[in-house]
Design a protein around this nucleic acid. Structure first.
Length: 848
DNA sequence: TGCCTGGAAGCACTA
DNA sequence: TGTAGTGCTTCCAGG
């Protein structure tokens, strides 16, 4: 279907606002006949501060995450806010839409623009691409995540087709503020899949609720309504909650945590149970729940059938609703938004929230720095606030000032700015067994020293501030709320720190006061970790994360510091990775401390590692991670046999015993032909190295290039002994940075980022935006040694590489400083070839 | 009594 | 399709 034929049922107003400019155009589409692509063009060079896309229908469009661009989308009155920081073009923003003739306009690539394209149903991909190509002049290859896809979903019209209340918008979906770039990079290998998932995600309902949550998944809001009605009938009032606001929350993702009162506890009978025989004995909501047989949200009066079961308005939600605690943050910039809490919450739960579950500290805090639940949430309590823009941070490197509302939880934030610093002075233990909902609490996080983690805000002590705590991913590069773990408030006699639960963007968050009398610090003895069942989460529509073996988390702390000018400065810090599974926790090694924490690039220093579950068979893996997840850097093991000429060998990439790539050719050149190399110091005696870089993450598809690169005529090394990057030159190797690190404590060096040995000993990288906060020079791992080790870069981004060493199986040898014996990782299957060649296997490990 | 903790059984999933 | 290995979830028991 040609976009030219689109009817006028969707009215997109594309607004490029800069300095108060007003909307510049409209596009109209017929939603039932077409799907839509919204393409963001050149947003990276946009000169506008805001790009707004509005629709007067209830199409749900989601924000997507792209590291270099920041968008925020609200709906049902669809608003896409783009705030860009470094305008490079002074050209006028140009609207690209089906009616605006982007084709053939060279400025389309120069100016920030949004392109909306309709797509015939049932042929989304192809037509998307065709249309794109035809109208926007983009090739298929130009598909990127700078596009939002708004297909027409069958479920839209036939709610009965929505099979399960578990089908929901993903926490990781495009619709979520918690959306993950990584998920895309990891999960979508093809445009089709990406689009299809996007299609599933991007859709609300054509009958989409005017109450639909505009931020991160209207479906969630629908469920909330459903839950409010069926679970909390008394709470069902549009005036009670920001979640119920007719304008909805701009940022309410379906990721409302799964609490004991939540949907997920109602395991639908059709749901493939992970343990059908389980009586769910301890589940507090199972069949005993009188509402267990309630119709799914799809059948509920909720106007948003695509609802997420995870979006719940529970006591927790209410209690935690930051509207009570976070309200005034927004007000700081918009005093007129100071809606009395009574107008937002009048239910008993609400009152309970405000009075029953808080302590003096929090009460005091709330009188001083109330926060807002989620971005723009409160703002929607008033019609006039519908257009309240979320100010996307302009410069991540210079601190983030939010005039209005808390930033989405997946946004990187600095840990220090202008003399203020949020520090995790005591790291939690690297292992904390999370508890299931069917279990009792397993207690709060503990520090390795035996106490509890300690967080401190330095540089500010004028008034109490509120600190938010949530469970984030252990992804070094992109910290975001974890799909499978939620923070859990621990209560008990031993808990001394006041806190209370809330839900922000469907992630359970603990709010902990930092009080001047406590030196603006807090001991985190009130936070446990709740494990959500993988099946529950993975069944969610659009969920792209896999729970299996995804058992590491980080604890994320955020604090909002009021500034003199009325703005709010948000700081964030995160703990090191925490292993949360029982088995892994029992089996994975834990590093408590090590020394030294750094050495020269040549390596060779001895390192003492103290921890648990470290055996003589343990290996120490050095790896380097970059912002990308699909590139690897490996170090070639030496070719031991004599060679008179080039020797071609093979290698493959393995992520485990049965996870191997096809073999690739590689050529060893004779020594006389080897390029310049430096001499590496003798490896340390305390460990013996597996001479290979263990590579984590996904493997670059450029691997076949090895064959071509393997020509003896080619040099693998630059003159500086740095790996020659094979990828296109437009992607220069990223400058790597250390993330902010807690100060060292004692030697052996306290583990700033406690992690099992399979995790990088190098502090994990953080997204470039955040990395700007604390840029530190990053030294490249040891370079090829004299034995023939050579660096191979599969990627220009030097994304991930690891250096595998192995603890000497014979401690005697270690202690006697014997010459390190190569400990080749044995994978007997199909290995004789390499062995016969005298090669050490380059093993790739997924970190397990 | 409730919470915390460690251990393990048994099922599900993957290769 | 069957099997083995691994991981997940639930349950039990003791402190």
């Amino acid at each position: 279907m040609s976009t030219a034929n689109c009817a006028e049922e969707l009215d997109f107003r594309l607004i490029f606002e800069e300095d108060g400019r007003q909307p510049t155009g409209r596009c109209r589409f017929k939603p039932q006949d077409a799907s839509f692509i919204i393409r963001f063009c050149n947003v990276g060079t946009a000169i506008s501060d805001k790009i707004t896309v509005e629709t007067h229908t209830n199409i749900i469009l989601t924000r997507f995450c792209k590291s270099s661009h920041a968008f925020y989308i609200k709906y049902p009155n669809l608003n896409i806010y783009h705030h860009h920081v470094t305008p490079q073009s002074q050209q006028q923003p140009q609207l690209q839409g089906t009616q605006y003739g982007a084709q053939g306009n060279p400025r389309a690539f120069d100016c920030p623009s949004i392109q909306i394209t309709s797509i015939a149903p049932n042929n989304h991909i192809d037509q998307c691409q065709d249309v794109q190509g035809a109208e926007g002049g983009y090739s298929d290859a130009s598909w990127s995540r700078d596009q939002l896809y708004l297909p027409v979903d069958v479920c839209y019209r036939d709610q009965t087709l929505c099979p399960s209340p578990c089908s929901s918008l993903s926490s990781r979906s495009w619709m979520s503020d918690l959306s993950s770039c990584e998920s895309f990079s990891c999960t979508y290998d093809d445009v089709e899949g990406e689009l299809q998932d996007a299609a599933r995600l991007a859709l609300g309902s054509p009958h989409g609720s005017p109450l639909g949550s505009p931020g991160c998944g209207g479906g969630a809001f629908g469920v909330e309504l459903w839950q409010q009605k069926y679970q909390h009938p008394m709470a069902f009032s549009p005036a009670l909650s920001p979640h119920q606001s007719p304008l909805g929350s701009p940022c309410h993702s379906p990721r409302t945590s799964v609490t004991e009162e939540s949907w997920l506890n109602r395991r639908p009978s059709s749901r493939p149970s992970s343990r059908p025989t389980s009586p769910y004995g301890k589940r507090r909501h199972a069949s005993s729940d009188p509402h267990a047989c309630s119709p799914s949200p799809h059948h509920s009066p909720s106007p948003t059938p695509g609802a997420s079961p995870r979006g719940s308005v529970t006591d927790d939600t209410w209690v935690g609703s930051p509207g009570a605690a976070l309200g005034a943050l927004l007000m700081s910039g918009y005093p007129e938004l100071d809606v009395p809490s009574k107008t937002r919450r009048t239910s008993g739960q609400q009152m309970g929230l405000l009075t029953g579950q808080t302590d003096s500290g929090l009460e005091e805090l709330r009188t001083t720095i109330p926060f807002q639940d989620s971005p723009g949430e409160e703002s929607h309590d008033q019609d006039g606030l519908a257009e309240l823009f979320l100010q996307v941070p302009s410069h991540f490197s210079s601190g983030l000032h939010y005039v209005s509302s808390p930033p989405p939880l997946d946004w990187p934030l600095p840990n220090q700015f202008n003399g203020l610093e949020l520090k995790l002075e005591v790291q939690p233990k690297s292992y904390h067994r999370a508890h299931y909902e069917t279990e009792g609490s397993r207690g709060s996080l503990k520090a390795a020293s035996g106490g509890h983690p300690l967080v401190k805000l330095s540089g500010f002590s004028e008034q109490p501030v509120s600190m938010l705590l949530f469970i984030g991913t252990a992804d070094d590069r992109y910290l975001r709320p974890h799909s499978f773990y939620q923070v859990h408030r621990v209560t008990g006699k031993t808990v001394t720190t006041s806190c209370h639960e809330q839900v922000q963007s469907n992630t359970k968050v603990l709010e902990i006061p930092l009080l001047p009398e406590n030196d603006m610090s807090a001991s985190i003895d009130c936070a446990g970790i709740l494990k959500l069942r993988n099946a529950d989460i993975e069944l969610k529509k659009g969920e792209t994360d896999i729970g299996r073996k995804n058992t590491r988390v980080r604890v994320v702390f955020r604090v909002a510091v009021p500034q003199a000018d009325g703005q709010i400065l948000w700081l964030q810090t995160a703990s090191g990775p925490i292993e949360c599974s029982q088995r892994s926790g029992q089996e994975l090694p834990h590093v408590d401390s090590f020394s030294p924490s750094c050495c020269c690039g040549d390596g060779g220093d001895e390192m003492v590692i103290i921890g648990s579950n470290i055996s003589t068979q343990s290996k120490v893996v050095f790896l380097e991670k970059g912002p990308e997840n699909c590139c690897i850097v490996v170090q070639v093991p030496p070719y031991i046999r004599k060679q008179s000429g080039p020797v071609q060998v093979q290698f493959y990439v393995s992520n485990g015993k049965r996870r191997r790539s096809l073999t690739q050719n590689f050529t060893f050149l004779p020594n006389s032909h080897r390029p310049l190399r430096t001499t590496i110091a003798v490896p340390p005696h305390l460990v013996k190295q597996e001479r290979g870089w263990e590579v984590l993450g996904r493997i670059s598809h450029s691997a076949p290039g090895f064959s071509a690169q393997a020509s003896p005529d080619l040099s693998y090394y630059s003159s500086g002994e740095l790996p020659v990057h094979c990828d296109p030159p437009q992607n220069p190797p990223p400058r790597l940075h250390h993330p902010p690190q807690p100060p060292p404590v004692t030697l052996p060096t306290a583990l700033n980022y406690s992690q099992p040995s399979s995790m990088p000993l190098q502090p994990p990288l953080i997204p470039p935006r955040a990395a700007l906060v604390s840029p530190l020079a990053y030294s490249v791992p040891p370079q090829p040694d004299s034995q023939g080790g050579a660096g191979i870069s599969v990627s220009p981004s030097l994304s991930r590489a690891s250096f595998v060493t192995s603890v000497e199986p014979q401690k005697e040898a270690v202690l006697l400083n014997t010459v390190p014996v190569l400990n080749i990782k044995q994978e007997p299957e199909e290995q004789p070839t390499l062995g016969c060649l005298g090669l050490q296997e380059i093993t790739l490990d997924d970190g397990e």
